[in-house]
Design a protein around this nucleic acid. Structure first.
Length: 712
RNA sequence: GGACCCGUGGCUCAGUGGUUAGAGCGUUCGGUUCACAUCCGAAAGGUCGGUGGUUCGAAUCCACCCGGGUCCACCA
């Protein structure tokens, strides 16, 4: 054996041996409960980052642990097309070439994005191998695989037929850069400095409102941060309890800059303490206003188009960009003497999660999933303990979201993703059919059809992932045997995006909760606890760590001493420390290999009381580690093993044994004990540091099956 | 506005009712290089944010307070 563990040379060889041996493919034993993890499919649009390395490590540890216990163990790998994320990322590439997606056209764009994705996917899969991921590559899946897509379309149709998916004209989040609608989750709110403008709306035949700030009594004053939307106002609302306005309710105001008159109405949603207590209602451009509009059957007037230009409904402002329209509206109001005052006002403005462009709330016809009927069973599954979260407190977060759930906008005007399975008759575009395949649509519509250009929210297919990967809706052997799965391991940041939806859709589609356990890993942060980001320049590339210190070292660095759900601080120092640990294992084994030949079984030698004490201590550690593993306290299990192996086994057992190994009378006994503990430590350590333990094992117990010499 | 998390040695964090509170990195002193990119031994360093309570016993449970962070949310 070499003086040090040559991870650079050995790790890839070992992985190759593992993969070729078929050991990652489980044997399905009838009657034996399998241990199953469906890997969260990494987005196939970039290399793996340190966060991926963490989840791979945690999952691989659990999978190796259960596999070694003799359970049929499946870890199914995959890749996600990652709709909007990939599209935005590829569009950035195009921008560098001075192109937009519209220059390419949809077909060519999809083709190129696909090539881009496949290239990234291959890289990503290699990186998983380098991290030691013992997943079953024979079962790998991609979210755009034909069978997965078919399952997605089938689900869409089923939900449509059962009234859970509907098409509706509602206020959605519109990203003007991506030119698509977004779900509420894909919008990030940012505190933005704005201006609150107080605008006077003249009363029609009005009487002086008591306490009004308007001395003439001819106006009702509203406050807004979006003056240009006034062109689409269809009412002014006040709180029913607001005494200041009680006499104005039911009256009309003349909407400035237009020739329309709009009513003054009452609605609970109005906050008396904000602004003047009177609010302009623009149902087409504000979510609250939309709801007020629904309650009062107000018309919706769209004055801002998807291109962020004023529509024809905006009269003389038609064609102006929103910002220009705002300035013009303000100027015109000023001229008319209708601006009472302005005030600085900071408020939250939604931004696109992917491209950071300010999102425009907009009335639009989109597809939605009705969430309330799905949320009920999903809440119950967690409440009843059918699904458990680790750590438990994330259940509160889950309930909190479930209880305030709103319908889910699932249609996107993107090009990369599953095209919605909605078809229109070519000759009669009003005739629509939802069908799992084009053939079915043609049958239903009796002739040629055109497919709706929209695509699905990428998280829709993700929500089906635990079972589409196993062949559902076909009742395959895999589905029967491995579903429901055992554990879903993922980051707490996608608990709503993904975990909640998998539970809802899993229960809906299969009638069973898709997994028993949700293990939340934390975020990997830098040494100072900062979020890792390219812009901060504190990125730790997992592959660089693997190159410098080995995958075992990186794995230990990621999990040792961390707890589920807690963010973990990562540093090169830490990885270096565990590189030394991997080497320590190697050298302890090397020492025993040098000093001991053909060790006897501990049952075949006369143990001293001291030997018995060593073995007893080992047994205690072994029991404790097992207990920790079963409770998913991996960080503690890793630390316990580290501490025991280094500071008890190496520092004490081996040191004390050194003189005994020179003593003919003691030699066999000492050798047997050392060998026994080493061998069992290797077994327990293997899930954490699979490479060095495997290399040692092969050298000591299987003969030198792999060369430990550096290849020239 | 609602909800959640955290506050433990210089730094980054484990530990969630029970004997002298732990690890990694860092610091100090000594030894060794005879398995180890070294390694070993020893040491310094914490009234576990504060106050009150429950308990035979609390870093660990409860209440309040202070400090830090995060998420959700339609105050225009």
């Amino acid at each position: 054996m070499d003086k040090t563990f040559d991870f650079k040379n050995l790790e890839p060889k070992l992985y190759d041996l593992w993969e070729k041996s078929g050991g990652f493919t489980p044997k399905m034993v009838v009657g034996q409960k399998p241990y199953t993890i469906i890997m969260p499919p990494p987005n196939a649009n970039a290399s793996l980052h340190i966060g991926h390395a963490l989840f791979v490590t945690v999952e691989d540890i659990m999978v190796r642990y259960h596999r070694m216990k003799g359970e049929p163990t499946l870890w199914l790998p995959g890749a996600d097309h990652a709709g909007i994320a990939t599209q935005v990322s590829f569009e950035k590439e195009l921008t560098k070439r001075g192109l937009t997606r519209f220059d390419l056209g949809r077909e060519e764009f999809v083709k190129q994005t696909c090539a881009f994705t496949m290239k990234n996917r291959a890289t990503m899969e290699d990186q998983l191998r380098r991290l030691g991921a013992s997943c079953d590559w024979t079962r790998k899946k991609f979210t755009l695989d034909p069978d997965v897509s078919e399952a997605v379309f089938t689900t869409f149709k089923k939900m449509y037929d059962e009234g859970l998916i509907y098409r509706g004209e509602r206020i959605i989040n519109w990203c003007p850069r991506c030119a698509t609608s977004l779900s509420d989750l894909e919008v990030e709110h940012k505190e933005t400095e704005g201006t609150l403008t107080y605008i006077k709306y003249p009363l029609v035949g009005g009487r002086r409102p008591r306490g009004s700030s308007d001395p003439e009594g001819k106006f009702i004053v509203v406050a807004t941060t979006r003056p240009e939307t006034m062109l689409g106002d269809t009412a002014v609302a006040v709180n029913p309890a607001d005494k200041r306005y009680v006499k104005l309710v039911g009256k009309k105001v003349a909407l400035p800059l237009t020739d329309r008159e709009i009513p003054v109405i009452v609605d609970e949603a109005v906050d008396m303490r904000f602004g003047t207590g009177a609010v302009k209602v623009t149902p087409a451009h504000d979510p609250t206003d939309f709801e007020i509009g629904q309650r009062h059957k107000l018309p919706s007037i769209v004055v801002i188009g998807q291109d962020l230009k004023m529509t024809e409904a905006a009269g003389k402002y038609t064609g102006l960009k929103v910002k220009a329209a705002r300035e013009q509206v303000l100027a015109d109001l000023q001229t008319a003497g209708l601006i009472e005052k302005t005030a600085a006002h900071s408020h939250n403005v939604g931004h696109c999660q992917r491209c950071d462009t300010a999102v425009e709330p907009m009335l639009s016809k989109q597809w939605f999933v009705k969430m309330a009927p799905l949320a009920g069973p999903a809440k119950a599954a967690v409440k009843s303990g059918q699904i458990k979260f680790i750590p438990e407190h994330f259940e509160k977060l889950y309930f909190n979201w479930m209880e305030n759930i709103r319908d889910w906008n699932i249609s996107r005007q993107l090009w990369w993703g599953h095209q919605v399975p909605v078809y229109y008759a070519k000759d009669y575009p009003d005739k629509m059919a939802v069908a799992a395949t084009k053939g079915e649509a043609e049958k239903a519509l009796g002739g040629e059809v055109a497919q709706d250009p929209d695509t699905l929210d990428t998280w829709f297919s993700s929500g089906l992932w635990p079972f589409t990967t196993l062949g559902w809706p076909k009742v395959t052997d895999d589905f029967k045997y491995f579903y429901p799965t055992t554990m879903m391991e993922t980051g707490w940041d996608i608990i709503f995006f993904w975990v909640a939806r998998m539970i809802m859709l899993g229960l809906y589609c299969t009638g069973q909760a898709p997994f028993e356990l949700v293990y939340m890993n934390g975020l990997v942060r830098d040494k100072e606890g900062n979020k890792i980001s390219k812009s901060k320049g504190n990125v730790i590339d997992p592959m660089v760590m693997v190159d410098k210190y080995g995958a075992d070292a990186l794995r230990m660095g990621l999990v040792a001493g961390t707890a589920a759900g807690n963010d973990t601080a990562m540093s090169e120092d830490k990885v270096r420390a565990y590189r030394n640990f991997a080497n320590k294992i190697w050298n302890a084994a090397r020492f025993i290999n040098l000093e001991v030949s053909a060790p006897k079984d501990i049952g075949a030698v006369e143990l001293t009381s001291e030997d018995k004490a060593w073995l007893k201590e080992f047994d205690a550690v072994s029991a404790e580690v097992t207990k920790l593993m079963d409770k998913y306290q991996l960080g503690q299990a890793a630390e316990k093993l580290y501490d025991y192996f280094w500071h008890t086994f190496c520092d004490k057992c081996i040191e004390v044994a050194k003189p005994r190994l020179q003593d003919m009378a003691q030699k066999d006994i000492a050798a047997a004990v050392l060998n026994y503990i080493l061998k069992n430590c290797l077994i327990m350590l293997h899930p954490f540091v699979p490479f060095v333990t495997e290399a040692v094992w092969k050298n000591l117990y299987e003969g030198d099956l792999i060369s430990t010499k550096r290849s020239s």
